[in-house]
Design a protein around this nucleic acid. Structure first.
Length: 1065
RNA sequence: GGGCCCGUGGCCUAGGCUGGUUAUGGCGUCGCUCUGAUAAGGCGAAGAUCGCCGGUUCAAAUCCGGCCGGGCCCA
């Protein structure tokens, strides 16, 4: 494409690559190229086209892309159709907001359903475009043109097909459900929707007493945080096994759970009370009480069932809060509803799905439930039934879209899919799925499946797949329609512009086959999770294309965030098991969420959401991707931190610079990569060449192992570490000298071949994480020096491990090298000897024979690398004779015993044999003779300090002890000085921005004659290293013509001053 | 109340399944140093009771139990 820029700028690279891909149809070509490979099928979990992509979505999508690119480059024919979830409540709500519609009831009155649906379509089209743009910008390669859309008739038809099948199997039901309802959106919510909206809420917390019938002054004390539900209270539940007590308070008797008496009394501020009787909960069954609002609510006067207004027992009663007696209102709670069913009491639910009381409660008719919450306690107080009142802050479900607190309402018209009869199959099929991490499937999802309730699928809304059920108003006959064709056949009349959405579908009338009346469609739409759940079949148009379906199903892989356990993972599994009796996917990676920088949840209301497009623009998609995937395990939650992305990005800078280095010299030499040549010359290659080639194999091996387990964080780190440690930090400095050799030198060519081979393997692997950068380097570097490469790195194959190049012994040898370097630096550092100054000798006292052998084989590298004249591996203990042990008496311990002889003792100890003393003390006590008197020395009386003579410094390491001989000689001084000067001249070259091969002329003036003499000894070195054609070294008295130089600068080198003049020639 | 996950220097993080020298790496701070690919790199210093308590074991960050704290999910 173009020469590499001096600096890596991700955004610039990415824009250019995106453009290249588009202009050259690269994605299409990679697909075509692999079409004969074995199939590997991915099922895309469709994002909702409502709102924009945030960084959490983007993390998941980066994982998808890494997996897809990996499989593609392993030769698979990867199925990767995109998909979009386009219907549902969120879309309606946004349209309502934009159009200024207060709630659903106003739709017909203001704009009509036709126009409303049109607006919904326009809205999802708008977001769809944004989502595609952001996904493309992220580098996520999916089939976008063929992407499935849940709003299309072809798609919806599959949902109908499924419901008809479920109905035939007896799984589709209708009837009373207590459903969480949003009074603002006027619709029931599914349990997975509820689960998204738990928030803290402040509620009243009231303790109320119910008077027992036929008993003098005896009351049941109950607790509730939703006072309005008392209006339809029907029972009080107690635990059959727990103990309850009768407490005397004044002249009244209250029944409370034994364990909670103190708590309740303390809350109510009652100190004067007495427990008078104990009873097991089961004994209280059937006790009748007087409903507190019997007079106000006619319904309570009209019902006299055995357990109406009576104590019942249930094991759901807990002892943690409240009174242990649980107020039970079947119309307002799922558990209460079950209790009601069990005890055969009818349901009272005097509230509409807008949260308003009906005429069944005349005094509150038309009032909002949460307003009534405040009035109920007042009334109870007047009646003398309120024991205590305060407030509580707790987690309460809210509408996930509009934040309105939900209410649980019994509604007999809801439609649902049954769990009974399918549950066992679901659990069994789930066990066949390979989950990452394992607990996501077995624990979390598996347990939930085993306990899941029926699935309420009906929604009283507009923009969604319509429920395909028509009902006869006269005889009640119901039919489920399974396809458009079937509908056409049955319909007495089809609208001209028919589509499978409201309001058009509502206009279809069917003649009842039983009584001949006109059947009307049940005016519900379906839970959008049912839409997306059908993706296993609907996304490939199973009804018209069963052959394709057969090829793909079950899919090899899906991955979504953990909240999809109850969402998509579940709806996919349910529909697939019912339809095909198979789990629809073989493997699933459950991803953790992305939180804000402080670990808080990202939400629009908090204003802490980071949009993906902004992240790509600000930081680049590649840095974003590799940060997200390398930072932590896929299933753990991650705090989003731009600062950390910048740090990760530095790794990519290093890669860029490595390539730039290679490119600079390869370009000068018109290098062409030849793998055969490299392999042929391998035996004669330098040790670091063979080492690096082996490291490539080890890293590629690890990369594959980790990718196969979906451990992207390990896979990416292995590559990054290899790149910055092995390649950049270790290998490149070792070959630097070689790239300066004359052009046809085989050692140089070898270095080039090895670098090229390494970068090729690295870039192909890394491509799964940073596809833009790797494509760029493929085009501008790999293709420049290698012949016959395809036009995209994605059209090449993943590197495989080449056992012939693997040499673990050599890798272990280089670990010794690293240890030696670090220990030698440490030892130098202790004496303040710069690495630039050569030392006389470095010695290693190795920890094992292997280390000794490996160190020996490194001799040549070590001399240069440690900047030492000699390197020696010494025998164990060989250095002891240099080490002197000094004795430090412990005066505190010795003083009291030795007293006046202390001075004499110290002088004796100074000349004593310290190592002998230490050996004796290790065995026990010993004696020292002072002035003819034996003094007993105990362990702890003396401390020993090892010290090395002035010319030696040492450091410990894992491979043994390293000694550096820092003896100064004229020769060493000279070399050090010249290197110091060289360094300054090099800096000046760089400051002048000279080309690496630019010749110069230089004059250096020294502030003292002695230094000048020293420098003269290695003048040649200075001239060669700095490419100085003319080099004058002069003393303090000389008067060079400084004005003749292009650049003149004075430097301090410790006490020495030098002045350097330089010009290019 | 139940289920699942998490808790490692000031901050972020690896390791935990399979117990074993001095607990990984990074950011930041300080001192030194290296460098003609590098906005990088290296050496060193300071900084951790691996949430707490108990158990198993010769040996626990790791396994087991309990508790505390945080998150998510469900009641």
């Amino acid at each position: 494409m173009s020469p590499l820029a001096k600096r890596y700028e991700p955004q610039v690279v990415e824009e250019a690559v995106l453009d290249y891909w588009k202009k050259n149809d690269i994605y299409e070509k990679t697909v075509k190229m692999r079409e004969n490979g074995p199939r590997w099928n991915f099922l895309e979990g469709p994002p909702t086209t409502n709102g924009f992509m945030h960084v959490g979505h983007a993390r998941g999508r980066a994982m998808k892309d890494a997996q897809l690119r990996y499989m593609t480059m392993r030769g698979y024919n990867v199925w990767r159709r995109g998909g979009w979830d386009m219907q549902g409540l969120p879309v309606e709500l946004e349209v309502e907001r934009k159009e200024g519609i207060a709630d659903k009831g106003e739709i017909e009155a203001t704009m009509g359903m036709d126009l409303f649906v049109q607006k919904c379509k326009e809205l999802v089209d708008f977001y769809l475009e944004r989502w595609v743009n952001d996904s493309v910008r992220l580098g996520l390669w999916l089939d976008y043109p063929t992407a499935y859309q849940t709003r299309r008739d072809d798609y919806i038809e599959h949902v109908w097909h499924f419901l008809k099948l479920a109905s035939k199997k007896g799984l589709l039901g209708r009837g009373y459900r207590v459903t969480p309802t949003c009074p603002r959106c006027v619709t029931a919510l599914s349990s997975h929707e509820v689960s998204q909206g738990y928030k803290t809420k402040e509620d009243p917390s009231i303790y109320v007493k119910f008077k027992l019938v036929d008993k003098e002054n005896e009351y049941l004390v109950i607790w509730t945080t939703t006072p309005f539900t008392l209006l339809s209270n029907e029972m009080v539940s107690v635990h059959p096994d727990y103990t309850y007590v009768k407490v005397q308070v004044g002249n009244e008797y209250w029944w409370i759970l034994k364990d909670l008496v103190e708590t309740v009394m303390a809350k109510a501020g009652i100190t004067d009370y007495k427990k008078v009787k104990k009873l097991k909960g089961s004994k209280m069954l059937g006790w009748k009480y007087e409903h507190p609002f019997k007079n106000e609510v006619p319904w309570h006067q009209e019902h006299h069932e055995k357990y109406m207004h009576a104590v019942v027992t249930g094991k759901h009663v807990t002892i943690e809060d409240g009174t242990g007696l649980v107020h039970t209102a079947p119309g307002f709670g799922p558990e209460d509803f079950e209790v009601g069913k069990e005890y055969g009491v009818p349901v009272l639910c005097p509230v509409t799905n807008r949260g308003l009381f009906t005429d069944e409660v005349p005094m509150f008719e038309g009032k909002y439930v949460f307003d009534v919450n405040a009035e109920v306690p007042k009334m109870l107080e007047k009646k003398g039934l309120l024991v205590h009142q305060d407030t509580i802050v707790h987690e309460y479900p809210h509408c996930w879209r509009c934040d309105t607190p939900l209410i649980y309402l019994a509604d007999k018209s809801q439609w649902f899919l049954k769990m009974k009869g399918v549950r066992d199959r679901l659990v069994k099929k789930n066990e066949e799925i390979e989950w990452t991490p394992e607990w996501a499937g077995t624990g979390r999802f598996g347990d939930w499946l085993a306990n899941a309730d029926d699935w309420c699928i009906s929604r009283s809304r507009v923009w969604g797949s319509p429920l395909p059920v028509w009902v006869c108003p006269d005889c009640g006959h119901e039919i489920v329609i399974g396809s458009r064709e079937e509908l056409r056949e049955r319909a007495t009349e089809m609208p001209k512009d028919f589509e499978m959405h409201r309001p058009w579908v509502d206009r279809v009338v069917i003649k009842c086959e039983k009584c001949g009346a006109e059947m009307k469609r049940e005016p519900f739409v379906l839970d959008c999770w049912l839409d997306s759940g059908m993706a296993h079949s609907a996304s490939v148009d199973y009804l018209r294309n069963p052959e394709l379906f057969k090829e793909l199903f079950p899919y090899d892989f899906i991955t979504e965030a953990v909240d999809q356990s109850r969402g998509w993972f579940y709806s996919l599994l349910y529909t697939s098991v019912v339809m095909h009796d198979k789990a629809p996917f073989k493997a699933c990676v459950s991803q953790g969420h992305v939180l804000d920088e402080d670990g808080g949840k990202m939400s629009k209301s908090k204003g802490n959401v980071v949009w993906a497009a902004d992240a790509f623009k600000g930081l680049g998609a590649d840095p974003f991707r590799i940060y997200m995937l390398s930072r932590s395990a896929p299933w753990t939650r991650t705090n989003y931190s731009p600062k950390e992305i910048e740090l990760t990005r530095r790794n990519l800078d290093i890669l860029w610079n490595v390539v730039l280095f290679a490119d600079t010299y390869m370009d000068l030499d018109k290098f062409k990569y030849d793998e055969k040549r490299m392999r042929k010359n391998l035996a004669k290659a330098d040790i670091e060449d063979r080492w690096l080639l082996s490291r490539v194999q080890s890293v590629v091996k690890r990369f594959h192992e980790q990718m196969e387990q979906h451990l992207y964080h390990h896979a990416s780190r292995a590559l990054l570490e290899f790149m910055s440690e092995d390649l950049s930090r270790i290998y490149l400095p070792l070959v630097k000298k070689r790239v300066w050799l004359e052009s046809e030198n085989p050692r140089k060519i070898m270095a080039y071949d090895v670098m090229y081979y390494t970068l090729q393997s690295l870039l192909r692997s890394l491509n799964v994480f940073t596809p833009f950068l790797c494509e760029k380097l493929h085009l501008d570097f790999l293709s420049k020096y290698g012949d016959g490469l395809p036009e995209s790195i994605n059209m090449t194959d993943m590197p495989e491990v080449d056992e012939k190049l693997l040499d673990l012994e050599l890798e272990a040898t280089f670990e010794v090298l690293e240890e030696l370097r670090s220990a030698a630096s440490n030892a130098r550092n202790k004496r303040g000897v710069k690495l630039r100054h050569p030392v006389a000798k470095v010695m290693l006292e190795p920890s094992s024979p292997e280390v000794a052998r490996r160190a020996e084989s490194l001799r040549e590298i070590l001399l240069n690398d440690l900047n030492t004249r000699e390197f020696e591996v010494v025998k164990s203990g060989a250095m002891d004779r240099y080490a002197s042990l000094s004795i430090k008496p412990n005066f505190k311990a010795l003083g009291p015993r030795v007293k006046g002889k202390m001075k004499a003792l110290v002088s004796v100890l100074q000349s004593a044999d310290a190592s002998k003393l230490r050996a004796e003390l290790e065995k026990g006590k010993t004696t020292v003779v002072v002035d003819g008197e034996a003094i007993e020395i105990l362990p702890g009386d003396l401390e020993f300090e090892e010290s090395l003579p002035e010319h030696l410094s040492s450091a410990d390491s894992r491979i043994g002890k390293v000694f550096v001989d820092v003896t100064r000689t004229k020769e060493l001084e000279s070399e050090g000085l010249v290197r110091d000067v060289t360094r300054r001249v090099q800096v000046m070259r760089k400051e002048l921005d000279l080309n690496v091969d630019q010749d110069i002329e230089v004059t250096v003036q020294f502030s003292d004659e002695e230094s000048l003499q020293l420098a003269q000894m290695h003048k040649d070195y200075l001239a060669t290293e700095t490419r100085a054609q003319v080099l004058d070294l002069v003393g303090p008295k000389a008067k060079p013509k400084w004005k003749a130089f292009k650049y003149v600068k004075e430097w301090d080198i410790d006490d020495l001053k030098i002045k350097v003049g330089m010009s290019p020639v």
